[in-house]
């Protein structure tokens, strides 16, 4: 099986504070990997390192085959990223947003034309293509943002709380998109505070105070922690750190 993310004792300190404390894990191609933890556990710091945005202090990590110390620019070209605050330009049209992101990722004019058509067809947005993103319903913005994070066919897509504040139907439709993407062979690295969504991941890691305290499939974690739901697993693990 092809490994797309590997970390070995990856560590990041800020002064005396260790935000990420010797974390080691591997993520496979096409896997949906849930990255959970309480607020302040170190998730954001770890994701920033894996996206090539922050230099680690020690340890090793490779993302899409590139070293997080040396080849951060190559990492950025090979990953997609989407956060809860959709990074769309609200005062550009849908077509302009597609064109902008394609250009940033260095696609050729021909590719841009092709991608625009594909994307508008897949999202059924042809009739809306020349409207401002501002006017789109939230669920559509989310789908568009996700598609744009994938516009350069990255090997891995990082989703940082992609479904925060989204209604229950749209949230589930979004997971249908995640499944499709993973089935096509893209690795999905996702954080969420919805514990039902943790169940949808192939494997889950739970960070506590900078360390990965649990890592396995939802079923195995539940039996390991003698818990009926992922919510309970999370609660048992994170309880000690709730003063943060």
């Amino acid at each position: 099986m092809e490994i797309t993310i590997v970390t070995d004792n990856l560590t990041k300190t800020f002064g005396a504070f260790t935000a990420v404390d010797h974390i080691s894990f591997e993520v496979q191609k096409g896997e949906i990997f849930g990255f959970l933890g309480a607020n302040g556990a170190g998730k954001t710091t770890a994701i920033r390192i894996l996206c090539g945005l922050l230099h680690p202090t020690s340890g090793k990590a490779e993302v899409a085959g590139f070293d997080v110390f040396k080849h951060t620019e190559k990492i950025k070209k090979n990953i997609g990223y989407m956060s809860q605050k959709f990074s769309l330009y609200e005062d550009l049209t849908i077509r302009e947003n597609i064109s902008f992101y394609s250009t940033v990722y260095g696609l050729s004019d021909y590719q841009i034309k092709e991608k625009t058509e594909q994307l508008l067809t897949r999202l059924q947005l042809h009739s809306e293509a020349d409207k401002l993103v501002h006017s789109l319903p939230l669920g559509w913005k989310q789908k568009l943002a996700f598609s744009l994070a994938l516009i350069h066919d990255p090997k891995i897509v990082f989703l940082d709380e992609p479904t925060g504040g989204v209604d229950p139907i749209t949230r589930r439709q979004f997971w249908d998109l995640i499944y499709e993407t993973a089935d096509e062979g893209t690795t999905v690295f996702v954080t969420t505070h919805y514990m039902d969504e943790a169940e949808y991941c192939d494997r889950i890691s739970i960070m506590v105070d900078g360390k990965i305290e649990a890592l396995d499939t939802p079923d195995i974690l539940k039996s390991q922690f003698k818990a009926a739901t992922m919510d309970e697993v999370f609660y048992k693990l994170a309880r000690g750190t709730s003063t943060k």
Binding site: A38, N39, Q84, G165, M195, A238, R239, S242
Partner: peptide, 13 residues
């Protein structure tokens, strides 16, 4: 929305 983006343990508290 006092609990938006807050983890399940802190939300419970």
């Amino acid at each position: 929305e006092p609990t938006t983006g807050v983890d399940p343990v802190s939300r419970n508290e």
